[in-house]
Amino acid sequence: MLPSYLTMAAILFCIGLYGALAKRNAIIVLLSLELMLNAVNLNLVAFSKYGVVPALTGQIFSIFTITVAAAEAAVAVAILIALFRSRGTVDVEAFDRMRR
């Protein structure tokens, strides 16, 4: 069963990668990042059951990842709201002041 779970995680990761790079709405870019983090979590939990040395450590790791991802989402949405107040848009193409 392990290769099936790994393939599933790879599919999710690649869809998330496409969304993060191709979408222009910053909220959707954030959601795609969450999708990629979730794919990694699936790998961790799958290896904690089917790995060579099955252990609960994988689940502990995924809990830590989920916590950090939650903090990241909160800060990212706050930054997005602040950016929206100063720029009036959430289009990632508009956030290029540091390039000019």
Partner: peptide, 30 residues
Amino acid sequence: LDAEFVAFVQVLIYAGAVSILMIFGIMMTK
């Protein structure tokens, strides 16, 4: 995968909190 606790954390934090947070983010922007 026999990870019931992680499953509940996933449903609570991701399906609950992060989704709602994103919806709030959408509502506060245009």
